[in-house]
Design a protein around this nucleic acid. Structure first.
Lengths: 193, 193
DNA sequence: TCAGTTATGTACCGATCGGTATGAAAATAA
DNA sequence: TTATTTTCATACCGATCGGTACATAACTGA
């Protein structure tokens, strides 16, 4: 069983570069030429290793969710509602306005990729969002310390709305420090001591 | 002074169709062919009447801000902080999840048009956002009824963050009714009676 | 050394992109 | 009518899009 010519690139770091580019320029705004240039490979190699641009994006999105975006799922393990929400909101600031990553959120960006041929990846992003929000709602539903009068579903949606807004603000150029101040105020009003 | 051949279309309704299309598909996702089809004219006529795709988008954005988005500037004239914020947040729901308009917000969409050739229109959208937020901050700075301990600048940014989040949620398919519930909860926590 | 296999580099595919040259059509002014 | 002006319709421009054919290079196993 022969081995063939070895790869001249590391698929993992190539995928990281693709993620970085999609994150910064969006799905529609990133061309195959951009990708091959950033990944240091040419188109046939890209296609052989990752498939279509759409399939490559799916892999990049998965890497995003389980890498920089993993804090969101982990936050639900916190003991108090307060801590869950705080980790979600502050984590959103770090994710979208962090120093070594592109501004904004890949998922939120993708929701706004409304072109006709971006529909499949948009569906991926929507499914991803839906899953995250259902998980948060379930967490709030079984929380004994949820403030009275707060419907878990609506509360989950409000938290999600605020993290979405943080992503937009970051994409629009708002700094990490400014957004942490916004997050602090949001937490104070949302869950007063 | 001869008159020449008359136009076979109404520039105002043509611009409305262009706005609708940009709103629904984004700047990058909308091609000139899409535009000419929706506006009922062909490319030379479009170019003669509105200029470049970029210039056409600028006109559409202006129409958006002074039409469906005019509530934002008008909300600042309300007498109480409570009413200002309520009109902004509820107005955002109506704008982005209204029945007869595309889901989402043209301005927020445009912020996420990160492709290289969308940079000029992105700058337009950013300037528009900045102006709106400065106006809200100024309004809050001279408000005697702002809750104590609330920095006007941070408060303005939080309100803007929430309306941005509402736009994302609407673009992701959340319904008008769900978003009104979210907006109600946001108002209740942000400015408790 | 020599198949067999996999990856690489180049050059190209049809389709579409935003934008335009060109000439006919439709109006006014003389 | 005739000259002038403006718009309309078609057809086309070079560039780029995502994706691929094809030949060569680099490896393993016999």
């Amino acid at each position: 069983m022969p081995g063939g010519r070895p790869r001249a690139f590391d698929p993992d770091v190539a995928l990281d570069h693709a993620l970085e580019l999609f994150w910064r320029q969006g799905y529609e705004g990133t061309s195959l030429s951009d990708l091959t240039a950033a990944m240091g490979i040419n188109k046939p190699s890209l296609y052989a290793a990752f498939g279509t641009k759409e399939q490559l994006f799916a892999k990049a999105l998965d890497r995003y969710v389980n890498g920089p975006g993993a804090f969101a799922a982990e936050a639900l393990a916190a003991t108090t509602v307060r801590e869950v929400v705080e980790r979600l909101v502050k984590g959103a600031v770090e994710l979208t306005a962090g120093r070594d990553t592109p501004p904004g959120c890949l998922n939120v960006n993708t929701v706004h990729a409304c072109g006709p041929d971006a529909a499949p990846v948009r569906e991926l992003a929507l499914a991803c969002r839906m899953a995250g929000e259902v998980a948060l709602r379930r967490r709030l539903e079984r929380a004994p310390d949820l403030p009275s009068g707060h419907d878990p579903a609506t509360m989950a949606r409000l938290v999600h709305t605020i993290t979405d807004g943080i992503a937009v603000q970051a994409a629009a150029g708002r700094t990490r420090e400014e957004l942490h101040a916004v997050a602090d105020l949001a937490l104070r009003t949302l869950l007063p001591d």
